[in-house]
Design a protein around this nucleic acid. Sequence first.
DNA 1: CTGAAAGCGCTTACAG
DNA 2: CTGAAAGCGCTTACAG
Lengths: 356, 356
Amino acid sequence: MDIGVRKPGVTSSQVAEHAGVSQSAVSRAFTPGASISPKTRQKVLASAKTLGYRPNAIARSLITNRSRIIAVVMAYLENLFYPDVLEELGRALAAENYHLLLFTGFMDRDSDPVFDQLMQYRVDGIILASTSLSSELSEECATAGIPVVLFNRTTERDAVSSVTTRNREGGKRIADFLVAGGHTSFGYIAGLENSSTNRDRFQGYAEGLAGHGITEIIVETGNYSRSEAQDAARRMFSLTKRPEALFVANDHMAVAVMDVARYEFGLRIPEDISIVGYDDVGPSTWSSYGITSMSQPVKRMVEATVDILMDQIASGEIEAEHRILNGDLVVRSSARLPQSGIVARDGQQIYRPREG
Amino acid sequence: MDIGVRKPGVTSSQVAEHAGVSQSAVSRAFTPGASISPKTRQKVLASAKTLGYRPNAIARSLITNRSRIIAVVMAYLENLFYPDVLEELGRALAAENYHLLLFTGFMDRDSDPVFDQLMQYRVDGIILASTSLSSELSEECATAGIPVVLFNRTTERDAVSSVTTRNREGGKRIADFLVAGGHTSFGYIAGLENSSTNRDRFQGYAEGLAGHGITEIIVETGNYSRSEAQDAARRMFSLTKRPEALFVANDHMAVAVMDVARYEFGLRIPEDISIVGYDDVGPSTWSSYGITSMSQPVKRMVEATVDILMDQIASGEIEAEHRILNGDLVVRSSARLPQSGIVARDGQQIYRPREG
DNA sequence: CTGAAAGCGCTTACAG
DNA sequence: CTGAAAGCGCTTACAG
């Protein structure tokens, strides 16, 4: 049933005429803090309501040079961590009266088209989560004067801000935990090789193990992908000398690895192999998995991200800021427990050796 | 390190001056099909490149009355089905050179603020996925002349299009499958009571069972929420006469229900209880679950959605269109198998009784 | 507090 | 094929 064609849309001039005031007055009625008498304001709002008027944000953007749009680039959403982040971002940006222009589903490395679109819409800020687009895009954007925040990645480049957790310390804590659990051989299933998270987590893990005199780590790469992680696990579990303890670079992969261990190799967890993940997200908390995992505080990470963006938009100055938050090693059932160091907090078990 | 403040941005006039042509010529150089000589075009593009010019999409929108922005309202992303949809939408819209303005993280029923934002940005179309915002918003938008498509929901209202799968037939097929599997008592864990998917799936299930002379169905409600589904499962499994066969209204809940069955009630699946879900998404395919589930073809649903939108935008006429796609009952290990009717297709086991 | 006017950066008839 | 000009719907000095 044909209900109608695109209406031209009510304009401020039409409201002005209806209310018997100037077009400027209409504009002022919709601008918080503008100098306008309560009486005029009422008249305008009444007319606006009658006519179904809503200010045209596009026209406003053109003149204010502020779109109130933040671009979010999130290459893939397969890892539940990211939908989680997206939902929080939606909330946080809406609270600041900003809008979220999402770029997702781009698997290819070619960042140029996305970048072009971003710039054409004159977004007020950019959040780059996951993906390696980050590196090339970021500098260009910053140079153009648009604040850029890397989410869950970091970089050395000037003018690109970042929000991360202490990945190196997280890796180290996992090493300590696994050593304290009495394991003697160690493996690592890596994420994307060129990502800072993977690099830092592995570095911390290796340092931690080295601190206990362990220098041999069996490494396979899963590239933060479910299917590649499964393949990596198959290779690792087929070794004659399979590691007793395995750190998987994120929970998204850890879940896949656990399934391979149990259903393809008949391994019992944690009796035959201990597995620790990273993110403390989604399925890792489910009964079927119960993964011991370093947590990343999504909500606080999102707050920090939006905070940086708002600051830089308000000040007009782009000064790279790096916020690094703390996580905890949440202890569940996927890895053998150490004798001591596990404390209860907020209804969870946390590994925190030698601390009050 | 302070790299710079917000740059004013290069304009077409600046490019025109640099290239020694009119501002109109610059505009034409960036408008496919515009009448401009190759020579002029080259000159303009060269200058544009030198100056780092990109057309301002905001200004363009103002004059064309087309924002090339599609609003996507997705209240929550906890159910992996929706991130999946979002990723496909990102791809499909980008291919049409449209952009995706995402509204998510609004749990409250209050749809007005979202609606207001949509309208202010003069979006060219609206996709409403999940959530009950749908009902109130939709009519208003359509009246304003903006195409609206409900994704995975449907409605009787004029001028609101929808894309769904045959939910009633899906429910019926599940009933047939479970009866053929030799079960004698039946349960249902419901989704959101007022959603068309829940209503249609249950109706088909009830009709299917009735066709076999079964009129008693034990029902609990999980509202498409993980935690509520767990509670529903706990209530149902505590009954003295627990159903042998259980249809859970979507996989997101089914996974939670399986965990409760196994780890809280010690039930074996499918020996003690058969579970069938809906969506065929995410964890349902993992080894730990292997859920028998009615599939919804996300990719084709997204294509249909974008197709409807593009048609209505191009024609300027809003005529409600309802696309209903087919799914299949993908057979895995969470439910007892019938003697016959299971066929292989595309590497999957499908339940398709009495068919070539 | 108010209105007339300039102008944001484009597209698109119009006339040549 | 090209340029001058009007105009999209707003905000914001400016003068009163």
